[in-house]
Amino acid sequence: MTDAPAASPQPLLSVQALEGWYGESHVLHGMTFDVASGEVVSLLGRNGAGKTTTLRAIIGVLGKRRGSVTCAGVETIGMPARSIARLGVGYVPEERGIFAGLSVQENLTLPPKLRPGGMDLEQIYRLFPNLKERARSPGTKLSGGEQQMLAIARILRTGSKLILLDEPTEGLAPVIVERIAEVIQRLKADGYTIILVEQNLRFAQSIAGRFVVVEQGRVVDAISNESGCRLHQLHAYLGV
């Protein structure tokens, strides 16, 4: 695993002057940041700052976007979402996106394998034993925590090494949040690159290597998790 700084010559993901619209409203006003391979970067900011929209713009499910998003050196701004996914980008949406009409196992195996090196079902079930027990029940009959695990687990099968993770702890009990933190630590150790949108600062601090602070659709600061004193500024940014 590389310990490359954000400004390495070839970042895995490079977002430059990204503009994005959510329906009629202009939400992203020139987002710019890089993510190096193997890094866990957390996008922080108040509600409505444009964090979720940034993830949606990266994966390409946003109606209208402009600027530049290069993934592994490939410019994706003109691509449909399916082609971006095939570059090895896995998306775990905020609302989790578990399908009610599909069983847990069908949900798990729905995303096609895009690249070699994904986990097989057995490895996934070892990581998330609950899912194995509930394999046949409808996806949305799972608890919120289990649905979140399922939303993460199904991406691990695809071989995607860049994961966009939108508020994985939202509305979950502390014990489940700890479990999800363990899983993300594990993925980090395995060399996955993760962009994490989070409101829960403590959770973000326990796993992210770097924080990108978003305000009104722009990056206003980037703070390394090692830079002790500056971490206090995060509280100010979040208004807590």
Binding site: G60, V61, A81, R82, F99, A100, E106, L110, P112
Partner: peptide
């Protein structure tokens, strides 16, 4: 079938199925 699972999933949330790399 798998094809049927794509159909059921895309009926619920086509954008997400597309974001998984499926040609909706």
């Amino acid at each position: 079938t798998k094809l049927g699972a794509y159909l059921r999933a895309a009926t619920e949330n086509p954008a997400l199925v597309e974001a998984f790399g499926v040609n909706v």
